[in-house]
Simulated scan of single mutants.
Amino acid sequence: MIFSISLKHPLCADECEDAQLNNNDYKICVNEAIYELDFCLKTCPPEIGCQNSCYENYTQMLFLCPCIEQESDVFILVIPVYVEKSYLQSGDGSSQISATMNAPRNDYADYAAYALVNGKLHIFGGWSDRTKIARLDDCTLNELTSRLNEERVFGHAALSIENGKKAMICFGDSDDIRKTCEIFDGSTTVSTFAADSTHSYGGLGLYKNQPATVGCNFEQHQKAETLSATGWTALPDHPKRISLHSLVALENQSMLLIGGYYYNGGVSQSGIWQLKDENWNEIGELLQADYHGSAIYIGRSVYYFGYSSKAIERLDFNEETEDLQNIEEIGNQPGSFYYPVLFQTVPNYCV
């Protein structure tokens, strides 16, 4: 289903009526887009790829013009390994527009984990600074004075907990850090229970409203665990020795495991697995197998941003029981971006 929203304030509606005749800002914007399209087409070599890119750029420019209605009601800010490559993706695939973001360095989000705390996007650790905590304010990633207790370079994960008031950050790439966890409340970090098994690249998700994790890249096991008020306890093992997947909680208390890497066969996975009522079941498959991806649940759809295939896929679930209904490829990432940071936002955010 395609939704339509109006971006115009009621008092400004008249400005968009017959905008092609009466709205100077609209006419200037469209004329600039047409000029750029014409110049691009005329300077293209005889290659269809160049011609197509001209029209794609033209479409992106039109989306920035006043009075152009956006078809989608979902917009996702994507911050990949290189901040300068950030973009805004529409949920229906109709637009993908470059976003202008600011950060202390271009690789600031490289291998960083992310979660919302009090409605604000935060990123944790990563290649550029293994103990950093940064917050997205408007279009800028601002580094906080608070630091992680453990060095978490890659293989770690973050999860919003306690109704979004805090974030839990767990695991990492070396030694006992592969088991450890800490909690950030917006200003300070405190250590909490360590998992019984290592879960580097095992991810974090919610199962029955409790943090959960599955698998491990280094030890290549299939163990799953969940955290309660007294510590971690075992969940049913996943049927495969898997990691590098994405974990997503549904409102029906179940948890999805999407994609990943299977060590028995040494191949990326297309499986969409669901842990529900203490049982794992494969409920569908991605259109393209992938791993190292990121996923976000908005409304009744999961948006999965793949790394190896670059595919952006939307998994649609029905309203009542959250059963998987449809899978659609809505676009491609503009590069092979692993673990991009995802943030639901509004049209034209930072563009």
Rank of each mutant, 00 (worst) to 15 (best):
L206C: 05
Y207S: 04
H221I: 04
K208P: 01
E225I: 08
Q210C: 05
G202I: 12
H221R: 03
S200Y: 03
F218M: 10
F218D: 10
N209W: 01
K208Y: 07
T226R: 14
T213F: 03
H199N: 13
Y201D: 04
Y207F: 14
N217E: 13
E219S: 15
K208F: 06
L206R: 04
L204W: 13
K223A: 15
S200L: 07
P211K: 06
H199V: 13
N209S: 13
H199K: 14
F218P: 00
P211E: 06
G203C: 06
L227G: 10
S200F: 04
A224V: 07
S228Y: 03
A212E: 00
H221Q: 08
L227P: 08
E225V: 11
Q222P: 06
T213A: 05
L206H: 04
A212H: 02
G215N: 06
A224E: 06
G215A: 09
G205E: 03
Q220P: 03
H221F: 01
E225C: 09
C216V: 02
F218W: 08
G202D: 12
T213I: 06
F218L: 13
F218G: 05
Q220N: 06
Q210T: 09
A224C: 15
T213S: 12
L227V: 12
P211V: 10
F218S: 12
K208D: 14
A212C: 09
G215V: 07
N217S: 11
E219P: 00
E225P: 11
T226M: 15
Q220Y: 03
E225L: 09
T226Q: 15
V214L: 11
G215E: 05
A224I: 07
S200P: 01
N217D: 12
K208H: 10
T226D: 09
S228E: 07
Y201E: 05
G215W: 05
S200N: 12
K223C: 10
L204I: 13
V214T: 09
T226H: 14
G205Q: 03
H221T: 03
K208M: 14
G203Q: 02
A224F: 08
A224G: 13
V214I: 15
F218A: 11
S200C: 11
N217W: 13
N209V: 00
V214H: 03
E225N: 09
S228A: 08
L206F: 05
E219H: 11
G203D: 03
L204E: 11
C216G: 10
L227R: 10
L206D: 02
S228R: 04
G205K: 01
P211F: 05
Y201T: 00
H199E: 11
E219W: 08
C216D: 14
G202R: 10
N209I: 00
N209H: 07
G202E: 10
Q220W: 01
G205T: 02
T226W: 13
G215F: 06
Q222T: 07
Y201G: 00
L206V: 05
V214G: 01
N217R: 10
L204D: 10
V214S: 02
T213W: 02
C216T: 08
C216I: 00
S228T: 15
